[in-house]
């Protein structure tokens, strides 16, 4: 019993859209403080898997265990669980009608029931961590893509999640803005945050990830340390994909 318990686990996880089986029995486990990269061709089911982890997508079979709790069990309050599973989206999805601070404090006030001044204090703290204190009163449309994504990260972090899920957090960004977001993610990683990241930022994955999992056609085909996956993939499909993205 020395091995640490996984914080997040998928057991034979399945998801179909109509007749299309997008996740075909995924087994995956994530240890506390681990950072795992999920890579694979477009349409292989990465986003769907990530979205099943917080049940934004309802799995059609299998189990998700988060922190010892079966997320599919009928008496789980998914809203309280979701507070512990932060999510960052490709398109940022900031609320355009609210200020940066209000974006961060909405869930703190309405779900965590913190009073305004406490919530504002947390927002200030989070903005400091992503380097955007001076944007507290700005609206999302006044920010660059990179800044918006950092606010989105701050919004997720504010709830003190145990795990954070990133779905292609830098794919919608102009190349010169990618670095600032990766920097924030690196800092998060250094602080011990447990993360699952869908991203093809290979260099970052190599530097920061503990593990890389390669998905293809709804299955995890191969996983291992970044070096092993990128330099010495065992499966044909992994080899093809890695050589594709390394070009």
């Amino acid at each position: 019993m020395d091995t640490p318990q996984p914080i997040l686990e998928a057991q034979d996880l399945r998801k179909s859209f109509g007749t299309l089986e997008v996740l075909q029995g995924i087994n995956f486990s994530l240890l506390p403080q681990e950072m795992v990269f999920l890579i694979g061709p477009s349409g292989s089911g990465k986003s769907t898997l990530l979205r099943c982890f917080n049940r934004l997508e309802e799995p059609t079979g299998g189990k998700i265990i988060f922190d010892g709790v079966d997320l599919m069990s009928p008496d789980v309050n998914i809203n309280t669980m979701r507070q512990q599973i932060g999510m960052v989206f490709q398109q940022f999805n900031l609320y355009p009608h609210l200020s940066v601070t209000k974006n961060i404090t909405l869930a703190l006030r309405k779900v965590s029931k913190k009073d305004s001044s406490e919530a504002d204090e947390i927002a200030r703290e989070m903005l400091k961590r992503v380097g955007l204190e001076e944007k507290a009163n700005a609206h999302p449309d006044e920010l660059s893509g990179g800044q918006q994504q950092r606010v989105a990260i701050a919004r997720a972090m504010a709830l003190e999640p145990k795990v954070m899920l990133f779905d292609e957090p830098t794919s919608a960004l102009d190349p010169e803005l990618v670095g600032s977001v990766l920097q924030v993610m690196q800092k998060l990683r250094d602080s011990g945050m447990t993360m699952v990241v869908v991203s093809h930022e290979m260099r970052f994955a190599r530097d920061a990830a503990d593990r890389v999992a390669f998905m293809s056609e709804g299955q995890i085909v191969e996983e291992g340390e970044p070096g092993a996956i990128f330099e010495n993939p065992q499966q044909k499909r992994t080899q093809d994909f890695v050589s594709e993205i390394s070009r």
Partner: peptide
């Protein structure tokens, strides 16, 4: 309003 708005809100635990 894009579905992303609802999803972002739900992902933070809002009903």
């Amino acid at each position: 309003v894009g579905v992303g708005q609802m999803e972002a809100a739900r992902s933070t635990g809002l009903k």
